[in-house]
Amino acid sequence: MRKVCKKKGIQLVSLASMFLVFGFTILIVVSALAASGADYPAKPVLFYCLSTPGSGFDTTTRAIVNALTKEKLVKVPMPIENASNATQALALSVTRYKGDPYMVSVQSISGMMRYATGATPYTHKDFTPLAGLVSTYYGVAVRMDSPYKTIGDLVKDLKEKPEKTPICGGGSDDRPFYGAMFMKAGLDITKVVYVAYSGGAETSMAIMEGSSKAAINSVDEQMPLIEGKKIRLLAVSSAKRYTNPILKDVPTLKESGIDLEWANMRYAFAGPEYPDYAKKYWLDIFAKMVKTPTWKQTLTRYNWDDSFQVEGLNDVLDKKQAVVTEVITKLGMAKKQ
């Protein structure tokens, strides 16, 4: 309106110093992120992670980018973008990234859950699944001094006094599994008291602290405390026992008399109408990646199972979606028609 204070000198100095800081930042980042062009990936490929940093998807996404960077398989930068709102992000990956060759993402059972409960209208059929990459298995954990020796002991208590035997799991994504498991064990799953937490660390804490009697979560997320002998596993959901020396004595569910195998496969996908050249490129890259020492090392460190799969991936996903929907319907959580 009226007059402004004019202090050009100070402004210039401050502006100049801001740019100095800024320039220094550029220097450092550029020194770390060296980029060069190639044929198809002519610009950075976005790894769109449908979950918060630190989550299972995020860890997988970062492990892939790490392996691709370290083994120099992909020459362009691969920025990772996290979307904490998974439902919205799933919709975006179908709509915004339709036909976009520069987006790759990772998905697993979480998306199927969202479809089954009606949170999202999209399934794997609405985008382009590329390749199955890793599988994780569930482990039923109890604390070290728990009276339960086998999964049968737990099932017995759940049958006799379900209200005294709360079990916990890592959020609603783990519901299909516990539902399927206890259905197979002959329990009325609507009687089981299930306390939802977010993630394996929290469920481990809940059983160590004693408020929950057993925890159902990914084996890999529970590993730190299994190795530290604070919690132990009653059973794992894989088809074969783990070869890891710490886990080799843990029986599978089948061995414990529950006829169920359950793998959570994390697979890479891209938007719908993905160009063929890009699809070919990534299938080729992933096929190379899974053979690299970095990737093999990553699998061991995270206790993931290699489940590289391109052919028949759609069938696997179809079947899993059917199972998930069935259990969710049984639990009364399914989309209301």
Binding site: P162, L331, M333, K336
Partner: peptide, 9 residues
């Protein structure tokens, strides 16, 4: 609002 029939105390 429709509620799931899981036992939620």
């Amino acid at each position: 609002a429709p509620r799931p029939n899981v036992p939620q105390i």
